[in-house]
């Protein structure tokens, strides 16, 4: 995995004195810094965007950094947001809702969750992939107590949104990459 530390980028692109990701102007500059680093990351790898050292995240910045990054690169790349606080999640969720996007996030205690306007069944399927580890659709269907076809539909949505990855004969969580 390639980890991109947002505080480092904030210091490099905006000011060394800041620890908060606030204002659209800042968000735009930081996104530019992230995109520069993404150029060196293979599309099959997971780009980890690290919020761990970030203080406040406002909605404008969340929109520039997470929203626009997913809109512009989300169909060709895997993203994982790391070190997000509850307040970060609130700002990011609002942005994802507006754009109809979703992303995998890991909080500061190492717990993973899906952020974005997804149905409960899709979230359950994601949790099953997380808990089971790399697994075939039939295994996941058994765990979810659903038919294989219905499970595949949910997994297809997760795949399409680049929230899980497909490997020979099965599905795996981004966290396992």
């Amino acid at each position: 995995m390639n980890s991109i530390d947002l505080k480092t980028i904030l210091h490099r692109t905006v000011s060394t004195g800041y620890r908060d990701l606030v204002t659209r102007h800042t968000g735009r500059a930081v996104r530019g810094g992230v995109e520069e680093l993404l150029d060196g990351v293979d599309g099959g790898q997971v780009a980890v965007i690290d919020f761990g050292a970030v203080g406040c995240l406002d909605i404008s910045c969340a929109d520039e950094i997470v929203g626009k990054l997913l809109l512009d690169h989300g169909s060709a790349r895997y993203f994982l947001l790391r070190g997000v606080s509850e307040a970060h999640c609130e700002a990011i969720s609002l942005v994802l809702e507006r754009h109809g996007l979703a992303v995998v996030a890991e909080d500061r205690h190492g717990r993973f969750q899906l952020l974005g306007p997804l149905g409960e069944r899709v979230k359950r399927a994601f949790a099953a992939v997380m808990e089971t580890g790399p697994a075939a659709a039939t295994q996941l269907a058994a765990r979810l107590e659903m038919t294989t076809d219905a499970t595949r539909l949910l997994l297809d949505e997760l795949l399409e949104r680049r929230l899980v990855q497909q490997e020979a004969g099965g599905y795996r969580a981004l966290t396992a990459l």
Binding site: V22, G55, C56, D58, S60, S85, E86, A87, E90, A91
Partner: peptide
């Protein structure tokens, strides 16, 4: 958690002026 969103609410209010 109330304190975490406070900076966001303050920032967005100020940006309303800037923008």
């Amino acid at each position: 958690t109330a304190t975490m969103g406070f900076g966001m609410a303050l920032s967005e209010a100020c940006q309303n002026i800037v923008e």
